[in-house]
Design a protein around this nucleic acid. Structure first.
Lengths: 140, 140
DNA sequence: TGATTATGTAACTTTTAACATTACATGAAT
DNA sequence: ATTCATGTAATGTTAAAAGTTACATAATCA
């Protein structure tokens, strides 16, 4: 199954954004991520809607952080990207009347819910300033 | 992103298999799962390699359990299916020399490892007899 | 104000992995 | 022998993510 690497990519971008006084263009970000500017705009747009970044059009335009790194957690960004489920495991739903299928799915769902809850809790405990710590990425 | 529903499907099948004295054909299983007999054979073949089911060719042939449900856990079957990773979240690996990317990926990986460990632990605690309990699925 | 630079976004194409299918070989029971 | 079933290689289908094209909109600058 194809992995969704947007979270990893966008976190990387946000921390780099903190290094610059001026906005960074979608084109520059796309080159850094080896992807397309439109893809960057699409992903960044979801973060803008949540208030983590802002975009400016025209000359000297581009993307910049709207909040300090310390105020952004992995969970914030994960949520902003709107991923439905973090698991590659799917449940069948074709025999919902079969008690065996129900029991199987309920059991799998319970375990996945518990694991996801733990994961989101941990994501909420890590802010981007902590990740950037130790590297020369402070705003000059 | 398309989910891998083999685990859910095959667990369903294994518990149903326990209801029959005689082997069940790939064709019958395929009808139950609304899929193709070849798909069934492919999936069941991985479980046979691990000793959970056996297959018999020819007349009265088909698939049957080789172990009691009580001796099979969700973890056993999950492992048998050989899924590489349970998460839809992928890490970038194009700037491995960048300390920021490293820090981001390490952090994400740590959290995913912890969540996966919990998940596998829970899968190991559930056996198929427990799932079948309460339904009339005992061998006659 | 007109050219330039940048984002905004709809429409479309490509890629990828799960899933499905076809075709035919092998082996067992009658 | 014939029939029934699995074994498996090769190929086709499908859906979601990612990528691309095309053009509109907005801001800056000369």
């Amino acid at each position: 199954m194809r992995k969704d690497s947007r979270l990893s990519r966008v976190l990387h971008v946000l921390i780099h954004l903190n290094m610059f006084e001026h906005p960074v263009t979608s084109e520059a970000i796309a080159k850094m991520l080896r992807t397309n500017p439109v893809v960057v705009r699409r992903t960044m747009a979801t973060l803008r809607e949540q208030g983590f970044v802002e975009s400016v059009k025209g000359h000297n335009g581009g993307w910049s952080l709207k909040k300090p790194l310390a105020d952004i957690t992995l969970l914030d960004i994960h949520r902003s990207l709107g991923e439905s489920s973090v698991f590659t495991i799917g449940l069948t739903d074709e025999h919902t009347q079969c008690p065996i299928e129900q029991a199987v799915n309920q059991s799998l769902q319970d375990v996945m819910n518990e694991a996801e809850t733990l994961m989101l809790k941990r994501f909420g405990q890590v802010n981007l300033a902590a990740l950037a710590k130790g590297f020369d990425v402070g705003k000059k």
